[in-house]
């Protein structure tokens, strides 16, 4: 286990019926770096993301540790893992388990500092661009319903701060002219950028991007990779990215994890991956 890593994935495994989708996955994401997760179709890349955000529950023994916001978060526990036999003789663990069963879930992962995007755009299409970003900042907004109804000073101030932050990110992603447009009416490339902007509004430390460049033209794709590099350098964001566009991956990644048939095939720098015969065999087949 690497202490400098923001995310440690250890012994992650998951089965769907008889199919073993992930088998003992181990890797880590170093802090303030770009890690790419690549592999042929069906290798289990998106499944890893889904385990991180709680759509799937990892099998027994899976450990996902997110070291963010100055503490170490056990994601499996946060997402409400099943009872274990030893819980029944350990009341504190039992209480904790019940707590996370009742109040745990995806939202805690986000609050711990992990944000993700999807392969397909999942914006709130009927809301305006700036509202999409405000939704993501609800934790920093005054939550009291009464304060909202009476528009108290605290509420308006917190709203002002949220708007400022939203505009900063819109500027960063070059969407500031679109602030009041309806999100569903933006062109595809801008929607993709808005998704990342919205994820950034939750103040994450780890950003998980699922095929951000899919469907973008080469110019848009180059612009996006520029933005991802700036996120790492200017904002010290750690990025875990799934991507099929190898030019983009080789250009921006500091570290690449290759998956194949639910196993980690190779783990190393882009140069090492390029020269690895194992990876080439997996992609192109053996000679």
């Amino acid at each position: 286990m690497d202490n400098n890593a923001i995310l440690n994935v250890a012994h992650l495994n998951i089965k769907f019926g008889g199919i073993i989708a992930l088998k003992d996955i181990n890797f880590h994401v170093p802090r303030a770096s770009i890690t790419a997760l690549i592999g042929p179709n069906g290798a289990g890349k998106t499944t890893v993301f889904n385990c991180l955000t709680g759509f799937y529950k990892g099998g027994p023994g899976s450990k996902l540790t997110l070291s963010s916001k100055n503490k170490s978060n056990n994601l499996v526990e946060m997402l409400g893992e099943g009872f274990k036999l030893q819980d029944f003789i350990n009341p504190p663990a039992f209480v904790k388990r019940i707590y996370f069963k009742m109040f745990g879930g995806t939202h805690l992962v986000c609050r711990a500092g992990l944000a993700r995007t999807f392969q397909n755009n999942r914006l709130f299409e009927e809301m305006s661009v700036v509202e999409n970003l405000l939704v993501a900042q609800h934790m920093s907004l005054e939550k009291s319903l009464l304060k909202g109804v009476f528009q108290t000073k605290d509420y308006l101030e917190s709203q002002e701060r949220a708007l400022d932050k939203a505009h900063d990110w819109l500027k960063f992603f070059k969407l500031d002219k679109r602030a009041n447009d309806i999100a569903g009416e933006l062109p595809y490339g801008e929607q993709k950028r808005l998704e990342i902007a919205r994820a950034m509004c939750t103040s994450p430390e780890l950003l998980c991007l699922d095929e951000p460049a899919a469907g973008l033209n080469p110019a848009e794709s180059a612009e996006l990779s520029e933005l991802i590099i700036r996120l790492r350098d200017e904002h010290r964001i750690s990025v875990l990215i799934i991507e099929h566009d190898m030019h983009l991956v080789m250009k921006i990644a500091d570290h690449i994890v290759v998956l194949n048939y639910g196993e980690v095939l190779f783990d190393g720098t882009p140069a090492e991956v390029r020269n690895s015969s194992k990876v080439i065999d997996a992609y192109l087949g053996k000679e």
Partner: peptide, 13 residues
């Protein structure tokens, strides 16, 4: 509009 996405943005749905 999208319950899973709302959860991912930290909203306790």
């Amino acid at each position: 509009q999208d319950r899973t996405m709302a959860g991912l943005l930290g909203i306790n749905t």
